[in-house]
Design a protein around this nucleic acid. Sequence first.
DNA 1: GCAATAGTTAAGTAATTGCTTCACTGTTGA
DNA 2: TCAACAGTGAAGCAATTACTTAACTATTGC
Lengths: 111, 111
Amino acid sequence: MLHDPAQLDLMFQALADPARRQMVDRLSRGPASVSQLAEPLAMSLSAVVQHLNVLEASGLVRSEKLGRVRTCQIEPKALRAAEHWINERRLAWERRLDRLGDFLAETNDEG
Amino acid sequence: MLHDPAQLDLMFQALADPARRQMVDRLSRGPASVSQLAEPLAMSLSAVVQHLNVLEASGLVRSEKLGRVRTCQIEPKALRAAEHWINERRLAWERRLDRLGDFLAETNDEG
DNA sequence: GCAATAGTTAAGTAATTGCTTCACTGTTGA
DNA sequence: TCAACAGTGAAGCAATTACTTAACTATTGC
């Protein structure tokens, strides 16, 4: 389910915004409440909640509410899925370059 | 220069669109002309050129025009930068979990 | 030369995004 | 009990995005 293109779409879309990346960055250092996520950001709490919704919809962040405070955490599996998509494309390209290098080396030996 | 936040912003923004990811995917299998990139996409050539501009501005793709055909390639360094950003955050989180696990194991031993 | 090819550019448009403010709900500490 | 706190939801708005069409330039094969 994590590699389905729609989910990948939501993840990259979520990561495209600097405020949301800052939130992910903050969460990578440990869980945080909505207010803690909002604190370094120059925007209303409401805007932060909206960003949080995007992050949760993408699967990158999970949260749970206890009493009046919602605690958020990173979902490393989702991060890994995005990472994996990029990695596969880059590796495909680099393998292709290697093969090309081998081919050129061989045809040079025979020239 | 590749880790500057503005460039990272452009890269993730570029990857957020499914058409552009499809173009990157195509390019990961080897260089292609603009028309070749456009071929599987259900949109005008003009739209594809606009997507290509976004990809080039982000540094993810490089292109060169010879005669009337523009040939595009992936820039693996840029892909690696995006990959790296995600990887660092995920690792930070996972290391934190490890430390937490160690701590809990230790305090259990002493109970 | 000239038509077809490959791409570029500009202008317009509909949908989406990233906010804002405001009114509101539920929770908690004094 | 009640004021402050933590968060939510809706409405509205300006900017951006992802297209479109149409007019255009430059290259190439015949």
